[in-house]
Design a protein around this nucleic acid. Structure first.
Length: 847
RNA sequence: GGUCGCAUAGCUCAGCUGGUUAGAGCGCUACAUUGACAUUGUAGAGGUCGGAGGUUCGAGUCCUCCUGCGACCACCA
């Protein structure tokens, strides 16, 4: 061993847990997460981090997003962009309130007992306790986001933005209060937006009720107490005579008055072909009421109890009322039959409680109303932003889904009867006047001395998130940050919230800023377990990203979320996969370790070294090809492809061939260091920790995060071809040795004849193949390669199967070439290539 | 009911605008291994690309139909 003056401090295996925290601290201390500290005049590049719930813990879906976003951010930073990745958290009104209510329930109390003020204090405390957790977990992933600009949807600035947005929309007539049917969750005692309702198939009963001259089928008999209409198909001859009439119906003593009307949406074949219409408690029926002028009788209140309009059933829960009413109908002989029936029950997306549609006075955003000075509706603005390609969605097919959703969007109910959230900036005066204002003081000033009370409701949590890309940069003030970093470039998120969030951000930004929130939407797929199932609490199949980081390192976890995945498609993550990438990270570590220990002096090599051998020319060409390809992959946001190519180059080319051969050819310090230094930079977006740790050995003036992305040099095509021949030769000989049960240290004589390989390359090949090179022809068996042959004292004949395959291959090629249709129609290049292939194949089976 | 996606080696997945005897990782088999790495190396076995038809000189790769999984949207009175 040469005693050289260098110190190598690299243990045998890379232990992520020993380095990651320290490295993250180095990055933090450097200040380079903050674009103000980047010494660059480059253009800006911004990503707004989708804010996780302030009370949540990091789940694997977040980990995927963070890995992708950080890879892009680090790539752009290395490329010299002025990069801002703005982190933050969401107050998640309904989710958080539900969570705290569960805690209260376990303590035997509830929010009403506590009262609004105390409850809010309790939630704030809870958020304060858990916000730090998610922040820490984002750091564990290695996220290079600018913590100095961290925001929270409920902090003062963002609350100001929310009020400003509300007021502008109110003044433009885009927000109104109306008495309408809404989705109501009786447990949350709040409204929900249409897309906050989920469906769950369940077994239920279909009751056939004798209903005046009709039989009406229903899954919810109790609602019939508030029917005001009966619908039939216009062509249904059975009921022609009733259409247009008003009928008095007796339902086990409960009297109702219904108007019979015809609508072609009625299926004459379903049930009895007659529908009892309950406008106050069914979305569809409400539309009927509007269309045909039916009376609306509210039957069920906000607690899910029957109102006075329900007669003797008043005060009962809907379920009690159903049972009692059906029993009464049975006594009155008005139940014709009861069938089993599967239907989709609508449930609350936060607490899974069945939704009770009911009429109520709420605040809405009008999506179809023309904006006065724009002459377009919100809906139109949002559609045009994508249609005119200002915003692109990846993958493309989600654009269609986006359009479909917007085209069918109804007015957005934004008031929630929750306590945790942005209070609606509306005050009511003694004389019923409505005042909209930024705060109570301003509202008072407008009230001319009258008493005022603020609206009790809060805003849909997605209202504040829809402002996220710009409210976080200081809007409504015209800040420097807003000018510099908005619109953002990339919105990376899961396809499951394209409606909740992505669409609403586009809609609000187009309206408020007359601009787009981002140029490109990158939608990652959902993470599934090894069996392809969704992660769920009930299955207990969740993978905790922090546990995985503890076990395998953040770099390995990041790789497993990026390589082998593509936007919009679901993918599986499981321990063995992460362990595989842990192995790779260790390989990269050991490649570096080998190079550092074999070179005379560790140093940075500025210029591409001159190749001295075929292998040198080959590896430099491969490296340059790699730089070119992955730069282009990054440009297209094809991170998976970039990662795969890096992996392939690092392990299969550099480690398996070039390093092995460097042990023989020697004196490759310059090339090894030149390539390693740059390879680490290329890996850095994916595996920031290990690369930064190895980087320390170079004693470079800067941390790796602010190094420069390499530029691709020239490729030597001849060298690539010749080296392919060398690899083929080596593989054949190794194979022969293995087939002949020959030990590795048994090195038979071998003579090599080859057009492509000069003497030095033949020596290298012999070394790699494990044979003793002979300068002149020897006795033995001759084996053909594509461009030459070798003679070796081994007797493995070409296997019968192989020979047959080869003959068939040759026959196929010959058939192709004698086919005029092929030679005349196919491009010249293809035909020539086919001829060459035939020649080579023939050579191989020649004696 | 509407829209869309997926079906490629035992498993997980690549295969872009159609043109090398279809690739990788894991797993499997055999051999090796005190000197970068067993979180390793070398070699090997293993798919004709869900099915049927079509376009084309040529299809895993485009079109049609079918089958099976899955997602989303709508609706189920």
């Amino acid at each position: 061993m040469d005693d050289v003056d260098k110190k190598i401090d690299l243990p045998k295996a890379y232990e992520p847990a020993q380095h990651e925290k320290e490295i993250y601290q180095l990055w933090l201390d450097s200040g380079f997460f903050n674009p103000d500290n980047l010494r660059t005049d480059g253009p800006t590049f911004t990503i707004s981090m989708p804010p996780p719930n302030a009370t949540g813990i990091l789940h694997i879906g977040h980990a995927v997003g963070l890995a992708i976003e950080d890879a892009v951010i680090r790539y752009k930073r290395l490329q010299g962009y002025k990069v801002l990745w703005l982190p933050g958290t969401d107050h998640a009104s309904i989710a958080t309130q539900t969570k705290v209510e569960k805690i209260l329930a376990s303590e035997g109390t509830d929010r009403h007992t506590l009262g609004r003020e105390k409850f809010l204090e309790r939630v704030k405390q809870y958020v304060a306790d858990s916000q730090g957790t998610i922040r820490e977990q984002i750091r564990r992933m290695g996220s290079s986001c600018d913590w100095s600009r961290e925001r929270y949807t409920f902090d003062d600035g963002l609350s100001q933005a929310v009020n400003e947005a509300f007021i502008r929309m109110y003044n433009d007539g885009l927000i109104y209060r109306g008495y309408r049917i809404v989705n109501w969750c009786p447990r949350c005692t709040s409204t929900l937006a249409d897309d906050e309702v989920e469906y769950e198939e369940q077994q239920s009963k279909l009751y056939y009720i004798k209903y005046g001259p009709f039989v009406v089928a229903t899954t919810r008999p109790e609602t019939k107490l508030a029917d005001t209409g009966v619908a039939v198909h216009p062509d249904d001859h059975r009921y022609q005579k009733y259409i247009g009439q008003s009928l008095d119906i007796d339902l086990a003593g409960h009297k109702i008055k219904v108007k019979v009307f015809a609508d072609k949406s009625i299926d004459p074949k379903f049930g009895s072909g007659v529908i009892g219409v309950t406008p106050a408690h069914s979305m569809v029926d409400y539309d009927f009421a509007t269309k045909y002028g039916l009376e609306i009788i509210k039957l069920i209140d906000e607690q899910g109890k029957i109102l006075a309009s329900g007669g003797k059933y008043a005060g009962q829960s809907t379920l009690e009322a159903r049972n009692n009413f059906v029993a009464d109908l049975q006594v009155a002989n008005q139940i014709e039959k009861i069938e089993d029936f599967n239907n989709n029950l609508s449930i609350c997306y936060r607490c899974q409680t069945p939704i009770e549609p009911l009429t109520s006075e709420q605040w809405f955003v009008a999506v179809d109303k023309k904006i006065p000075y724009r002459n377009k509706s919100l809906k139109e603005l949002a559609i045009e932003a994508v249609k005119h390609k200002d915003i692109r969605i990846m993958p493309r097919r989600f654009e269609k889904i986006y359009f479909h959703w917007l085209e069918n969007l109804h007015d957005w109910c934004i008031s929630r009867q929750l306590w945790w959230g942005h209070r609606i900036p509306i005050w009511y005066t003694d004389d019923q006047q409505i005042i909209v204002a930024h705060d109570e003081a301003k509202a008072k000033a407008k009230a001319n001395g009258q008493n005022i009370t603020q609206d009790q409701d809060t805003l849909d949590t997605w209202f504040s998130s829809s402002l996220w890309t710009f409210s976080t940069l200081g809007w409504p003030d015209d800040t420097k940050d807003l000018q510099l970093y908005h619109p953002t470039l990339l919105m990376e998120t899961g396809y499951d919230i394209i409606f909740f969030w992505v669409a609403r951000m586009i809609l609000m930004t187009e309206y408020l800023l007359n601009d787009k929130p981002f140029a490109l939407v990158y939608l990652h797929g959902m993470v599934r377990d090894k069996e392809g199932r969704k992660f769920s609490k009930s299955l207990g199949n969740g993978i905790n990203p922090i546990e995985m980081i503890d076990k395998f390192g953040a770099d390995a976890l990041r790789l497993s979320t990026i390589i082998g995945t593509s936007p919009g498609n679901d993918f599986r993550i499981y321990e063995e996969k992460i362990a595989g990438y842990r192995n790779f990270v260790n390989k990269l570590w050991n490649i570096s370790r080998f190079i550092f220990s074999s070179v005379q002096k560790i140093k940075r090599v500025e210029k591409e070294p001159q190749p001295k051998t075929l292998a040198d020319a080959w590896i430099l060409s491969e490296y340059n090809d790699l730089v070119e390809q992955i730069t282009s992959d990054f440009h297209r946001y094809d991170l998976s492809s970039a990662g795969e190519k890096l992996y392939e180059f690092t392990w299969s080319k550099l480690a398996d061939w070039y390093l092995e051969l460097a042990k023989f050819e020697k004196n490759k310090d310059e090339i090894l260091l030149y390539i390693l230094e740059r390879l680490l930079i290329l890996w850095h977006p994916f595996t920031p920790f290990v690369t930064e740790q190895i980087w320390k050995q170079f004693e470079a003036p800067h941390l790796m995060i602010v190094e420069h992305w390499p530029k691709a040099g020239k490729q030597d095509q001849e060298a690539i071809k010749a080296f392919a021949e060398l690899m083929e030769l080596v593989a054949m000989i190794r194979n022969l040795k293995a087939e002949n049960k020959m030990r590795v240290d048994n090195k038979p004589d071998c003579y090599i004849e080859n057009d492509f390989l000069i003497k030095e390359s033949k020596l290298t090949a012999a070394y790699l193949a494990g044979v003793t090179w002979q300068n002149s022809v020897i006795d033995g068996v001759k084996f053909n390669t594509s461009h030459g042959y070798f003679i070796i004292n081994l007797h493995k004949p070409l296997k019968e199967q192989e020979l047959e395959n080869m003959k068939k291959y040759i026959a196929d090629l010959e058939a192709k070439l004698t086919n005029k249709a092929f030679t005349e129609n196919a491009p010249r290049q293809i035909v020539d290539e086919t001829r060459k292939k035939l020649e080579q194949a023939k050579k191989k089976i020649a004696p």
